[in-house]
Amino acid sequence: MKNLLITFSTLFFLTSCSDDEYINPEANKPLAEIIADQTLAARNPENPYDQTGADFYKNLTEYITKNGYPKSNAEIIDQLLFMANRKISNSTNKSIITITSEMISIILADPENTLFDLINNSELSAGVKINLTGFVTELADKQDEDYDNIHDFIVSYEQGIVQSLALQEDEKDTILKVSSISRYSLYEEARKRDRDWETGVTNRCIKNFKADNQFTIATLAVLFNHLQ
């Protein structure tokens, strides 16, 4: 299970040590236009919390546009810290915990188990905990599929949550925020892999960080307390 989750998020936000420079064809577009063009394939208007994922993607794009993709552990931590401090729609801000670089470093050491610990130790109901851990497990099982299939899976999952009679509305909220961010984050992962494939770039230069990293899982762990 752990190996599945680890390999699922390989190559996200990492860049090569190659001397070849990637020229972004969208560099001269306004940020809002870039985001609107890019996220068409990631959207699900049937999820009432789709904007939570869209805001996450906007913040992510803003960071990458300004700083590029991380090339070191410190830059990965800096990126996650930036995301943790940015406002996203429908975040509760109930958490009294302030995310620090030290906490993110701990999360990056074992993103999967950290996320599951956060879910299981939260005040969410047993049903929601089971639902969320099952959702993450399903994502891992689909790691080798292309993004269209993953998107279809998430949309179908979200439809089931929206229509569920077994879950309270406030319970659905947390699940749909997590799935929304996952959908947009995994979309960016797919875009990054496609770009690397087209340019012949490989990700070799980050040291002391899992070669097969779990950036989406780590991101969910960093943001989880603000989604309940």
Rank of each mutant, 00 (worst) to 15 (best):
M1I: 10
K2E: 12
N3E: 15
L4W: 15
F8C: 06
S9H: 09
L11I: 05
F12Y: 07
L14D: 11
S16D: 00
D20K: 14
E21V: 15
Y22P: 11
L31C: 10
E33R: 14
I34A: 05
I35L: 14
Q38F: 08
A41G: 11
N44T: 08
N47H: 08
Y49E: 05
Y49W: 10
T52I: 06
A54P: 01
F56D: 07
F56T: 04
L60M: 13
Y63M: 11
I64C: 12
T65P: 03
T65Q: 14
P70Y: 09
P70M: 02
I77G: 08
L81T: 10
L81P: 02
F82Q: 07
M83Y: 09
R86S: 11
R86I: 03
K87I: 09
I88R: 14
I88M: 15
S89A: 15
S89G: 06
I97Y: 07
I99C: 06
I106W: 00
I106P: 00
I107G: 07
D110Y: 02
D117C: 01
I119R: 01
S122L: 03
S122M: 02
E123R: 03
G127Q: 10
G127D: 12
I130K: 14
L132Y: 05
T133H: 02
T133G: 05
L139S: 05
L139T: 05
Q143S: 12
D148G: 08
D148I: 13
I150L: 14
E158N: 09
Q163V: 04
Q163N: 11
S164W: 05
L165A: 14
A166C: 06
L167M: 13
K172E: 05
K172V: 02
D173Y: 06
R183M: 12
Y184D: 06
E198W: 07
E198G: 12
G200Y: 00
V201W: 03
C205F: 00
K207F: 01
F209T: 09
I217F: 08
I217E: 04
A221S: 08
V222P: 05
L223M: 11
F224Y: 13
N225V: 00
